[in-house]
């Protein structure tokens, strides 16, 4: 029902994202998606990989501060207004979104939206009620 995501603390120091990518490469872990939230002093890198459990271990061993969390992933048609329609439904249902990011699966003409909601149960019922396709780790 949920998509597992890892979050990594990044010092605002030259080469830290590169260090992160190298750890994944050295452990042969494929990156599915990633985004960075940054402030003046530090950032949080959020990512989904093919093997998050291994990624968490490898990153910790390499000296990164890491956590993992469960997020909602949905799939919509990759057309103009696709994201807007879903957000409108969630908004109408009273769901606040802490953050989201998305990526397109061009070969299937579908777009994936990964989001963190403040009220997960409400978000899930809005999604179910509107027959929005929900993703699980296995089909990411």
């Amino acid at each position: 029902m949920f998509v597992n995501q890892i979050a990594v603390f990044l010092e605002n120091r030259k080469g830290r994202v590169g260090d992160f990518a190298r750890v994944l490469a050295d452990n042969n872990i494929d990156l599915v998606s990633m985004s960075i939230a940054d402030t003046k002093e530090f950032g949080i890198l959020r990512a989904i990989t093919r093997d998050n459990a291994l990624a968490v271990k490898a990153l910790r061993d390499a000296g990164f501060t890491v956590t993992s969390s469960e997020l909602i992933g949905i799939e919509v048609e990759d057309v103009a207004g696709g994201l807007s329609a879903v957000l409108q439904l969630l908004d109408d249902g009273g769901v606040d979104i802490e953050y989201l990011y998305s990526y397109a699966r061009t070969e299937a003409n579908r777009a994936i939206i990964i989001l963190k909601a403040n009220n997960v149960d409400v978000a899930l019922s809005v999604i179910a009620k509107n027959n929005i396709k929900i993703l699980e780790n296995s089909i990411i």
């Binding site: 979050a7 402030t39 959020r46 890491v66 956590t67 969390s69 802490e98 963190k116």
Partner: peptide, 14 residues
């Protein structure tokens, strides 16, 4: 920082 991140959002770290 310790090895466990306290949350996946900026505000927790701030």
């Amino acid at each position: 920082m310790g090895e466990n991140l306290i949350g996946d959002n900026i505000s927790a770290i701030q």
